[in-house]
Design a protein around this nucleic acid. Structure first.
Lengths: 194, 194, 194, 194
DNA sequence: GATGAATGAGCGTTCATTCAT
DNA sequence: CATGAATGAACGCTCATTCAT
């Protein structure tokens, strides 16, 4: 339930674009103001602090993520398919909103802003939890190997996902993330099912 | 290989400590000067630009890594054991030099400095290549499953390693990285050998 | 005399409250707008400039003061009693409207706004004049010592009054201003009558 | 024992001049930098925060005051003469360093900076204490009337001193403060001795 | 009457870098 | 070799004020 005004939304989206284009470090109030064609002061009509803008971005990502996750649960497919879907969604998300990766993988940068660091951590934790639960389910239903704990398997799954995304970013989006993601899933699936 | 003067070396190590203690964002010339007990100007006697310092740090890490890798190859153990050793070394390295993780995982921060970004990328690539080769060897010798390509497996291996380290950092080193690393290896091993 | 509209009056009183609560430095248009539950633009419907608001406040204080003074003259009591009453009133006023002290004693803040500085100065002068006249009267009637000029005595009277109020403010109203005022008067009275 | 460097001292004195000329509100880093013919950044080589500059100014005033007070105690004159001297010194100080009045009487402005507010308060308290003690001494030796407590008398003495200085400032130093101060003392003396 | 948006100037502060000594 | 001083550009932020609606 985001209750952002139109302008706030506009600013947030411009910020997201800016991050996608030039990285989080270039998200300055001045650059952002330039991007929306206003002066710096104008931004402060709509957000009290810069941190609030980052928070807003995280919230948008959070809700985007939630909306995607809901689609999965509705499908009532096998846990393995659900897992595939989760990974797929992540690749789609990052492909769609490259800023999301920049923000969510910028733990270092938020180090000095507890509020943000905590939010990023929470998002990470939550995803981890979802994957872990699905794996546990899969193990119970016999679809997924039982000789490795769900926690360890989820680290393996999420870790490889993250690394793929990181490479994609470092290569300046030189390859098709979703394609590679699909291929990665195929490998992961083999691993999970032996 | 390194042709750093004593003082340069001293500065670089202080920088590494500083990063380990307070994060990469706190690596300012002022803070660094304070750490080595000299003035800011003094640093510029020994390094032309701040970027050169970061480059120096990366080079130190690179050589540290190479020296460790050489130890492995000397041992002439099985490829699986060698792989284990590679992972082990990484956990040991990060555990030993926390700054290394902070620097190597700070792709975002280097985004606007091509030279640095490239170096980080190269280091990453090289490790990837080593792991990949070992896996290929393992596949040829029958120790490692063949239904997944070395490239994919190496992403899985390195990805989970990275994620574990990232968690360790975010938790402010709250758990024993080497222990958890060993446990992770056990899982990875099962995966590689089915 | 005041020709303020209802809304203007409302704004001025909110401003006075704001000053009393948070000090003159917190009297910003934004804070004031928040206090009256309107927007900043709304205030500019009723006052052209911020200075006009401060002027308005001063005028209210001026009239409040005049109305109190009128009560004294009506009483037709002895000059000494009238003087006592003047002091009493001041302590009552400041006690009642702490903002008044904040505004009237903020000469420094008005330094760059001639209009305001002049008004504050005028208020100060006028009080001085009243006290001075009363003392002169008292001297003529023999109630007050004649070896010190009315001007000097009035400085002594008003100066101690001001200092007492200043202390009360700095102590964040930690003591009962009116009580202490009464005690101060007793001392002043002894001084005036030898 | 101020341990300011030459440049710090220079900056502080420029700040004092600036205050004397344009008031405390005009003491901005930019204006100050302009005054010393440097850029704003230059100031921060020598003072970490603006507050430190204000603190430095207060310290200078404090020491100036102490040095003057020491001169009095050396003279070993009668308490009444000492009191006269204390007042005299204050008028001389303010006359000599008009910024001192601007700073010391700016309680309102420091309201949000505890450190400064406390220091100003301490200076005020100390003076109050000195005057109060002298008066008590004078009462014991029979030079000063005993029917009013030292605390009350000191409020009267310091209050009139302050008011005189305030007037002088508001009049933009239109009269000779030391002359008027001497005249004020004559009145005060009469009061103290009946 | 009032709102909501915006502006422009200013503020305190940080930082990589330069340079005379 | 090193210092101490300075710079210039940037940053996050605040405030009085304006104006179309």
């Amino acid at each position: 339930m985001t209750d952002f005004t139109d302008i706030q939304f506009n600013i947030l989206n411009s910020a997201i674009d800016l991050i996608a284009e030039k990285g989080i470090q270039q998200l300055t109030i001045k650059n952002l103001a330039g991007k929306i064609g206003k002066t710096e002061g104008a931004i402060y009509r709509h957000f009290e602090k810069k941190t609030d803008i980052l928070c807003g971005i995280l919230q948008i990502f959070k809700e985007y993520k939630i909306s995607m996750q809901n689609k999965i649960q509705e499908k009532k497919s096998s846990t393995l398919m659900q897992l595939k879907e989760v990974m797929n969604q992540h690749f789609q998300m990052f492909s769609d909103k490259p800023a999301m990766a920049a923000v969510i993988f910028s733990e270092e940068i938020f180090q000095n802003e507890k509020q943000l660091a905590d939010t990023v951590f929470a998002i990470m934790q939550e995803t981890q939890h979802i994957v872990s639960s699905l794996i546990e389910q899969g193990q119970r239903s016999g679809q997924i190997r039982k000789d490795i704990s769900p926690e360890q398997l989820s680290i393996i799954v999420m870790g490889s996902l993250r690394l793929m995304v990181t490479r994609w970013r470092l290569s300046r989006n030189a390859f098709d993330l979703q394609n590679e993601g699909t291929r990665l899933w195929e490998s992961i699936e083999k691993i999970l099912t032996r």
